[in-house]
Amino acid sequence: MRPLTDDESRAVFEKLANYIGKNLIHLIDRPDGAYCFRLQKDRVYYVSEESMRLAISVARPNLVSLGTCFGKFSKSGKFKLHITALDHISQYAKYKIWIKPNGEMPFLYGNHVLKAHLGRITEDTPEHQGVVVYSMNDMPLGFGVTARATVDTRKLDPTSIIVFHQADVGEYLRDEETLF
């Protein structure tokens, strides 16, 4: 377990800023206690200071997980967000999209969001913007990247993709052994 280097923090922050923008400051500078990012076996964890200090005494091979896993670094140094980060992302999400009940299951099986399933969407969402996907009763289901700007979605046919799937809560079951 170690703190992130400058480049690593930059990669993590850039990825997070895709979804929550400037609200990222609230993750770093929290009023309810000190939290930090820690790297352990390529995975980035968001941990409170208390549990981080406890985990210091655990040897690296014995430490399985701590805090909240935010994602992992690929071998080429890219950062990939995991669904486990959804709690924190949905809390501060800038752009949101709500999908109809008949679109929930397809999305939870890892498919992209189609226009037919679109319930609501934040106004002025630009193209290729990270968005959090909610069900109609405001339950966060996952996150993705918009394929079109909000304005352009009007002209699309119902079968075209509007949000590319990135992560969904179905991964808790599908990728259970590698997720945390």
């Binding site: 170690r2 703190p3 280097t5 500078d29 000190a34 930090c36 210091i56």
Partner: peptide
């Protein structure tokens, strides 16, 4: 070379 894990969190923040 990495920063020490047990550095003060204020500095890290």
């Amino acid at each position: 070379k990495f920063e020490p894990t047990e550095k003060s969190l204020e500095a890290e923040k």
